[in-house]
Design a protein around this nucleic acid. Structure first.
Lengths: 247, 247
DNA sequence: GGTTAAGGTCAATAGTGTTGGCATAAGGGT
DNA sequence: ACCCTTATGCCAACACTATTGACCTTAACC
């Protein structure tokens, strides 16, 4: 059995599988991502993953404590991809904005995987690297520690929450999404003005809006608010004589 | 078998189960919520639900097309509960704030159920009622339709996204949560200042923050931003002579 | 009261995650 | 260059799961 999982770093003997493939954490995670993309959100099963790898399902338990553990590794992979596509410019607002968009985009690129992992905290290296990066940007911009922590918390939770929500709609199977859209058309768009005046009045505008993500809008309001807070904190430390008259 | 589900409204013959209970959609949904609360997020199974109701599992398919359909009904129940605890005051910001908090709280009261349903759109009556209410508040406050739709979209998605995220951490089993917190203590709090200076510097502040939800903070920034937008739109329509000098 | 079919039950199918035991070959030590 | 140890892949089994088709009882309508 697989009572203990050997950490990837200490793995010595790599015996090829009966069908010839040599396993590794990375290969398993990537194959799992492919399974999710090809077979939908419920398509990641130990048996199917084993078959795709040319290995017995139980072999997976030599690499991960269970499918739950594998799920966390998948989340870590998504975080890593986001970090890889991001580069710092030194301008804190632009950097935070880009980093948030990178995480959001990375999750939406694998919606089924995102749904499974977005609300989990993995505590693995690349996730920690993202956290460290965000705090570094904020503290580097001059936020006092207390403020930096508040903004950091709002920023990361906001980003993950929207990633999960938006991924959720993308992750639906084609039939399910078609059914949802048909439901919208047949339900919301047809509500009589008598009982639902406000939806009826804005139905056309709603239809154009609800397909897009609201993440950008909310992220911008957060960054605006943070910028004001920063200016205020800065003014407290270095008072401008010109503002002295109106305290 | 159950080739077609009879709508609750047209249900005539209510035959008691072998063990004597008389079924109904409402009873099934409530029992399902209890199962989720008592047995955890994976604890809602057809067998167990049937046993709790004193009925054969297959009987459920006379009431719902599948467990997925039941899940949607559960989401509808949570939305309904939120709406029931909310009352309008006429002040748009306070009303939106209270409504958002009500939905958030209603989901967090049944975290396991929230995780299953928060990212689904049910299209059922009470969910539509919430949407109609939000749009009514915004349009009543004087938002032009285009602005009202943008704020509505950000508001509802933000609320549902945070409901799902925050419910996710509450929904963990006691052992899983203990493991997570231990992971935090043993990983984040112990990171050396050499490799992770920013996390190390703020570890104490982080520990105090991460237990709370960031929903309130983000919701307030959104409402603030909306208020500014409203004032600006209002000023365009009814220009104040005092502001005429600085266009 | 007789008739119809709604709705509860039984049995079976095809899937799932996970584990204990076994066997084989990889790599380190000599 | 060989041997030994043990990591690692495989097999079989267990206890579950959702879902469906056939059957049968009894409630409700005429």
């Amino acid at each position: 059995m697989a009572k203990q999982v050997v950490p990837e770093a200490e793995r010595r003997r790599r015996r090829p599988t009966r069908q010839g493939t040599v396993l590794s954490e990375k290969l398993i995670v990537r194959t799992a991502l492919r399974m999710l993309r090809e077979h939908g959100g419920t398509g990641l099963t130990a048996r199917r993953l084993g078959a795709a790898l040319g290995a017995d399902p139980s072999t997976l338990y030599r690499y991960f404590a269970g499918l739950d553990d594998l799920t966390r590794a998948i989340g870590e992979e998504l975080m890593g991809r986001a970090l890889d596509t991001w580069t710092a410019t030194g301008e804190w607002r632009a950097d935070l904005r880009a980093l948030g968009q990178a995480v959001h985009a990375s999750y939406l690129a694998d919606p089924q995987a995102a749904v499974l992992t977005a609300s989990r905290v993995t505590g693995r290296p690349r996730e920690i690297a993202v956290d460290e990066t965000i705090l570094g940007i904020l503290r580097g911009a001059g936020f006092p520690d207390a403020d930096a922590v508040v903004v950091y918390h709002a920023f990361i939770d906001l980003t993950l929450a929207f990633a999960a929500l938006d991924a959720g709609t993308l992750a639906l199977t084609d039939e399910a999404r078609a059914a949802d859209e048909e439901m919208w058309r047949s339900t919301y768009a047809e509500l009589p003005a008598g009982t639902h005046p406000h939806i009826a009045a804005t139905a056309r505008l709603l239809a154009g809006r609800m397909n897009h993500s609201a993440y950008s809008v909310v992220l911008d309001t957060l960054l605006n608010s943070a910028a004001e807070q920063l200016a205020w904190a800065h003014a407290r430390r270095h008072p401008d004589p010109a503002d002295a008259r109106k305290p």
